[in-house]
C-alpha cells in the first residue's frame, strides 16, 4: 500500500519537498514518527495532520491511496 504525504509552508522547507510517496505505513502516528526520524527538525514544529483533506485528532489508520498533509500554523487573511 502507498500513501501520499504533502508538506506545506515551512514544513516543505524542512522536508525539502512538497510531496512524497510512502509505503507500508499503518497509521498517522507511525507516519509522523517515521517523518521525525527522517527529518529531525520536524520534532520541534507545530502542525496539524489532515487525512484526505480532513483535519484529524489523535491517531487514524491509513489505507492505500490516502493523502496525508502536514499543516503548519495557518496565516490566511
Amino acid at each position: 500500500m502507498e500513501i501520499t504525504v504533502l508538506f506545506f509552508g515551512e514544513l516543505a522547507e524542512v522536508a525539502g519537498a512538497s510531496k512524497m510517496a510512502v509505503q507500508n505505513i499503518e497509521d498517522t502516528q507511525s507516519l509522523t514518527e517515521w517523518m521525525v526520524g527522517k527529518y529531525p527538525a520536524l520534532k520541534n514544529r507545530t502542525y496539524r495532520v489532515a487525512v484526505n483533506k480532513e483535519v484529524i485528532s489523535g491517531k487514524q489508520s491509513l489505507k492505500n491511496g490516502d493523502e496525508v498533509a502536514l499543516l503548519p500554523p495557518y496565516a490566511g487573511g
Binding site: 515551512e10 509522523t32 507545530t46 496539524r48 484529524i56 485528532s57
Partner: peptide
Amino acid sequence: LWKVNNKYVDKNG
C-alpha cells in the same frame, strides 16, 4: 519568515 495567525491551535498536541 513564516507568518502565524494568533489563534492557531495544534489539534494533535
